[in-house]
Design a protein around this nucleic acid. Structure first.
Length: 589
RNA sequence: GCGAGAGUAGCUCAGCCUGGUAGAGCGUCACCUUGCCAAGGUGAAUGUCGAGGGUUCGAAUCCCUUCUCUCGCUCCA
């Protein structure tokens, strides 16, 4: 990474992105639209490469993961079951004094005396403010403390010497309208729905409200049974999906990092609950050392699976040019975890504007499938013949122990989900009976990555500057994007050494024709050769091929060889044309 | 959404204070030149000065509104 100040580096990257056609602001000719970005020619190739590498490594290279491509608009019930309708509709309000933003439903109810003011004036300047305001003070506190806050409020609105007007006291019980920190009145609560709403059908009304998905994952849960029944997969296995998701962010920030329309790469990897693993294998293996635990084993519990996926994902990033040192693993603290999550690891990248999340790998227990089972009324469980048989062979004490552990987990989930205690107990007991018959709801490990964030990480990580000084002492700074060849938008540039020699141009065209179709190859004969190299460096092209007079046979033993030039160090080597394709393929795959 | 700063050629910026109808460097394109790292020459294109409104004989310049970007408060792909 270049050694610039954070903002400087970010500005350079943003500027380069536009100049070279990686990223443009959406709808720019109309003044742009906040939180939306388009990918230009180079960006589109880069993004495509990243998604294909993810898809290939997740599905094609594995026996135990299959793909899904679901719609963006789904049955609205999905978002009620997932919790997005509730948690994404937060009423927010602002403190009128400090402008601090608060979740109005999370404000501790306050009681005391509210002092209302109709406005204030400044005798000195003759100015007046007629905006009403109030301050809540706890019972017993003097009125002066309210006045002090109110004076600050009116001072902030331009009065120097404040004379408060229309003071009036009122008893208040359990109000959420005041800031607990300073007693200041808050703005009216406004709902902040982070889901984009639309209507299915031509006439918008309440009955046909639908949402653009705020994550791709829920479709995987909703289609879990279909995939299970049609893919010939058995737990443990995963379902992968990439696609657009939409969140009406309060504050889109940091270039493409937080966008309102963005793309995700998500895997839901379904595993057996630990109780099932124990029944089948007699014990549950747990992590013994940090690092990659190796090939999956039958006796792995959720913790090992979780660790496995964390390490798999880090390997993926390493494979596309983000070394482990550029990443940071953050294990969420118990109080930060969502209530259904058992563990979540964030993979953070050191962006110029701060260390921020690229991907979250969550162990989500059986929460999601259970929610959809309760919400849809359709079973989300799987049946495992082997489990039923193994259960039959257990002794009574073991059945009792494993059964009660399973019972506690299921009851815990149901109670948290709002099921009345008595009913939850009854249902949890039924679940234990199901377990004995070979039925259970799979747990899930969810590695969920943001594509656009990853693109931004790759761009900022690849960005570097090289300053050279020529004979005349004139120094010049060139930009090199040091992309891993796997993600580089253009894999190879093909140039005739000179443009005004038709034989060179024809030969270069021939080489270009040989390579294109196999990989993104770019032909260029404009300007001097050094300039063309520089242009490709800036686009992040790892290799350039130059056709010269030796290629044509000027030095007989060099006939049909070309110069291959490496981006990162300018090194050149001579290669036979016939071996070119293989040489490049080895390095870009 | 709120507070602070900014928006002029593809990019980086000057001009704004003190109104008189837009400039530099780089880049882009064409031609010439070219013997491996942004070489040189000649020529060309490009701005409704972010958008809208107002003041004025006249606005990039002064005033208002709006949009976008950057930074702080919330967020986690």
């Amino acid at each position: 990474m270049a050694e610039s100040k954070p903002n400087e580096l970010m500005e350079k990257v943003v500027s380069l992105c536009k100049r070279r056609g990686f990223v443009y602001q959406s709808s720019e000719v109309y003044g742009g639209i906040n939180g939306f970005w388009d990918y230009g020619p180079l960006g589109a190739e880069l993004k495509r490469n990243v998604k294909e590498l993810w898809w290939t490594s997740m599905t094609r290279m594995r026996d135990d993961v299959v793909g899904l491509e679901a719609t963006i608009i789904m049955h609205p019930q999905i978002w009620r079951a997932s919790g997005h309708v509730d948690t994404f509709t937060d009423p927010m309000c602002d403190c009128l004094l400090t402008r601090k933003r608060l979740r109005s439903d999370q404000i501790e109810p306050q009681s005391g005396t509210a002092y209302h003011y109709s406005g204030a004036s400044d005798a000195g300047s003759g100015r007046a403010v007629s905006e009403p305001y109030s301050v809540l003070v706890q019972a017993g506190k003097p009125v002066e403390s309210a006045r002090k806050i109110a004076i600050q409020f009116y001072q902030a609105r331009g009065l120097a010497a404040v004379t408060l007007e229309g003071e009036r006291a009122e008893k208040v019980e359990n109000s959420q309208r005041y800031n607990p920190d300073n007693g200041s009145l808050l703005t009216e609560p406004r709902p902040f729905n982070l889901m984009f709403k639309t209507h299915v059908g031509p006439v918008p009304d309440e009955d046909n409200v639908a949402y653009l998905r705020p994550e791709t994952a829920q479709a995987i849960f909703a289609q879990f049974k279909n995939v299970l029944e049609t893919s010939r997969q058995k737990v443990p296995f995963g379902i992968a999906q990439t696609g657009k998701a939409f969140r009406n962010e309060v504050t889109p920030r940091n270039f493409t990092f937080r966008s309102r329309e963005f793309e995700q790469m998500e895997l839901e990897f379904f595993i057996r609950p630990d109780e099932v693993v124990e029944v089948l294998t007699g014990s549950v293996a747990t992590p013994t050392a940090p690092g990659h635990p190796g090939e999956p084993e039958r006796n792995w519990g959720w913790q090992l699976w979780h660790q496995y996926w964390v390490e798999e994902r880090i390997r993926f990033y390493e494979g596309i040019g983000l070394p482990r040192t550029s990443l940071e693993e953050y294990w969420q603290k118990p109080d930060e975890l969502a209530h259904y999550a058992r563990a979540t690891v964030d993979l953070l990248f050191k962006f110029p504007f701060g260390t921020q999340e690229l991907e979250g790998i969550a162990a989500r227990s059986d929460f999601d499938l259970s929610q959809h089972e309760r919400s849809s009324g359709k079973s989300m469980g799987v049946f495992d013949e082997e489990l039923r048989t193994a259960w039959g062979k257990l002794d009574e004490a073991t059945r009792e122990r494993i059964g009660s552990s399973y019972f506690e987990h299921r009851r815990g989930y149901l109670v948290k989900a709002g099921v009345p205690a008595e009913l939850a107990e009854k249902k949890a007991r039924e679940d234990v009976e199901g377990l004995a018959k070979g039925q259970y709801i799979p747990h899930v490990i969810e590695p969920s990555a943001g594509v656009d964030r990853l693109i931004l990480a790759l761009l900022t990580h690849a960005y570097s500057e090289v300053t050279t000084t020529d004979d005349k002492g004139k120094s010049e700074t060139r930009v090199i994007l040091r992309f891993h060849p796997r993600v580089a938008p253009i894999k190879v540039g093909v140039f005739p050494l000179l443009k005004n020699k038709p034989e060179l141009v024809a030969k270069a065209r021939e080489v270009h024709a040989l390579l294109r179709g196999q990989m993104m190859a770019f032909y260029d004969d404009g300007g001097a050769i050094g300039r063309r190299y520089a242009r490709q460096d800036e686009a992040g092209t790892p290799f350039c091929v130059t056709i010269d007079f030796d290629t044509l046979g000027e030095t007989p033993e060099l006939k049909d060889t070309v110069t291959l030039r490496h981006r990162d160090d300018g090194r050149q080597e001579r290669l036979p044309m016939g071996g070119l394709l293989e040489f490049l393929r080895e390095r870009i795959h």
